[in-house]
Write a protein that binds this DNA or RNA. Structure first.
Lengths: 207, 207
DNA sequence: GCAACACGTTAACGGTCACTAACCAGTGCG
DNA sequence: CGCACTGGTTAGTGACCGTTAACGTGTTGC
């Protein structure tokens, strides 16, 4: 990859570099478990040099979590629009697109996924509310897609199912070590998610 | 251990009380995020009084995590034996029993479930290895049950599916606040898990 | 009665850690 | 040149926190 990269995806700026390493370290050892000196060391500068780029450790976590949540929501909404525009009819296409997008995210940004549901409580009130709002909106995008496909499914059950499927898709970080084959993993996860949704819709209230 | 405890389930001893509150606090704010004074305050004693019952903060976490892992594995193995003994034939009965047991655990001991996959790295090497070993054995119990029901499913995929289903079942702590109806929740989760397993077994390699 | 002990208490200590202060090298620019 | 600004550096500081020390108090067995 590009040391100079004359074109678009410019070389990763220092800020981004710091954020990436911080995400990795936070995911590995927890927010409180990693010191600013370690974060600095991970990008080649040491300790308080970070304060030229961030107001503090909290600010790094906040930017990470808000960033993840925004990217997830944006990605979801983009797929909704694309699917609506393409209007090719197949009823599950939107749900498939959402699942695929989430899987890409879970596989490519494992540290962020870990942080996303692990360190939310370490945020200041304002940031936490913002992240929760974004998360709620993302869930809502999914719930609508699910209910469009399975109209018989009640809203409460759809929402819980979406949460559960998130847990399923986000389970990849728990697989210690690199996973063997990315495509096969993605395909399997996709199948599992669809299976869960189908089961949710089937035999809704079992007497 | 027990001071005298002539009988079985005596009133909750101080130790157990401390463990429960510590689990709750660790789950809420992370191992490093909660101080010994808070744990003490949660059980009515203050600060260093805890050291009459535990060697240190680490020891509490270790006992919690080892305890969870042992209870899970024991529960799983018990159900395997019971199912084998009852030998009533229905092929999915063992898997259903495992799912049900895990759901009971996830719903009744939410803080422990949270700790179980969040704070493992805060343990000393020896304890961490022990917990991982127990977890691996528990997964293996599931993998065998799954492959007994779906013999066509490859072992690697079965194992990954089991991990994913754990993620699905363990998603309940993320549902902020008390869940509305325990039985309905359990039934839904059970259905989702079965759906995921069925999907894993279906159309194993898609060309 | 009293020694031993279980179970607390408060005070202090040592280390860690986020953050600040003060300082400094390079770069672009008039 | 001089000047400002960016992005570093090291040293220090105040707070927090896990742990230990020293001490006290009821209960229990002999």
């Amino acid at each position: 990859m590009s040391t100079h990269a004359t074109t678009r995806v410019a070389a990763p700026t220092r800020r981004e570099q710091i954020l990436r390493e911080a995400a990795r370290l936070f995911a590995e050892r927890g927010f409180h478990g990693v010191g600013v000196d370690e974060i600095g060391a991970a990008v080649g500068i040491s300790g308080p040099g970070l304060y030229r780029h961030f107001a503090g450790k909290d600010a790094m976590l906040a930017e990470l979590l808000v960033g993840i949540s925004e990217r997830l929501l944006d990605g979801g909404r983009t797929r909704v629009s694309q699917d609506a525009a393409a209007g090719d009819g197949s009823p599950g296409s939107l749900l498939d697109a959402l699942i695929e997008g989430h899987i890409d995210f879970a596989l490519d940004d494992r540290p962020l996924i870990t942080l996303h549901d692990r360190e939310l409580d370490r945020l200041r009130e304002a940031d936490r509310k913002r992240v929760r709002r974004l998360q709620r909106q993302y869930v809502e995008v999914w719930v609508e897609a699910v209910r469009a496909l399975y109209p018989a499914l009640a809203e409460a059950e759809a929402r819980m199912t979406v949460h559960a499927v998130f847990g399923l898709l986000n389970s990849t970080p728990h697989l210690t070590g690199a996973l063997p084959d990315r495509d096969a993993t993605a395909a399997l996860l996709h199948r599992l998610a669809r299976g869960a949704f189908a089961a949710a819709a089937c035999s809704e209230v079992p007497a």
